[in-house]
Design a protein around this nucleic acid. Structure first.
Length: 245
DNA sequence: ATTCATGTTGTGAT
DNA sequence: TATCACAACATGAA
């Protein structure tokens, strides 16, 4: 399985892990500094996600897995190198390479709010809109990468959603008309859903409007810019995306 | 050999 | 004290 760090990809991962739901851990380990011994003999009660976090829920604790930029989670398969986190069951194994793992003391409900998770049924557009209002001077490009506002959004979804909503990434949040904000939130969920469908279906997601493109679908030129602050690139069409400042 | 990439956290300077 | 810019980390493909 390829690297797949944005929200939709993590949800696909969850789907693929379902055969292990309800199964008992035979052996757990990895070089991540968490007490994996505690997991031996425990039943994997539930598997869920919060944005880019993959959550393995046990009766008294939850393992939070994050793939960062390079992480891979292989199912019933191993590759070279040491596993940073793994679980072995009677019916197969989950092998994490360069994934981060952390043990949370308790159930996910105690830690997470799904109103901001773009992949979750509890997503609440009004709530997210309210959160955005707290950052009027921030650029929308930056706000979209904030996992406490747009949980699960990564660089691909951000750029594609801004294009779909016709908003320039360097627009100031406070200057964007409310209707355009609503459009953006809707577009974000649409883009994410499409990514999820593509990944579930073909296992790949390679179709982009502006991300890493030279020209947008409408024929206009795509501008690429590296934001120094975050060291990430934005891709946008000056022609199509309105700048609010 | 070098550069770049779907990400986050910690540190030192201001 | 708070904020900000950058370093650090980890891997594989081009």
């Amino acid at each position: 399985m390829a690297k797949m760090p944005e929200g939709p990809a993590i949800l696909v991962l969850r789907d693929q892990l379902m055969p292990f739901k309800g199964k008992v851990v035979k052996r757990a380990g990895g070089y991540e500094k968490i007490p994996t011994r505690k997991l031996t003999g425990k039943k994997l009660m539930e598997i869920c996600t919060w944005g880019k976090h993959l959550l393995l829920v046990f009766s008294t604790a939850t393992v939070r897995i994050h793939l960062m930029l390079f992480g891979r989670l292989l199912i019933n398969e191993r590759s070279g190198g040491k596993r940073s986190f793994f679980l072995e069951f009677a019916n197969g194994e989950i092998n994490g390479y360069t994934v981060r793992a952390k043990l949370l003391d308790g159930k996910p409900k105690a830690f997470y709010d799904w109103r901001t998770d773009i992949m979750h049924p509890d997503f609440d557009a009004t709530w997210v809109k309210g959160l955005l209002q707290q950052y009027p001077d921030t650029t929308i490009a930056e706000a979209m990468m904030d996992q406490d506002i747009f949980t699960g959004v990564g660089n691909k979804i951000r750029n594609e959603a801004l294009y779909a909503a016709s908003i320039h990434p360097l627009s100031r949040v406070g200057s964007i008309p409310p209707a355009a904000i609503s459009r953006l939130i809707k577009a974000t969920r649409n883009v994410a859903r499409k990514f999820y469908n593509n990944l579930s279906g073909t296992g790949a997601n390679e179709k982009f409007a502006v991300y890493k493109k030279a020209f947008a679908p409408d024929g206009s030129e795509v501008t690429t810019e590296k934001i120094r602050k975050t060291n990430r690139k934005i891709y946008y069409s000056v022609h199509k995306q309105a700048l609010y400042r």
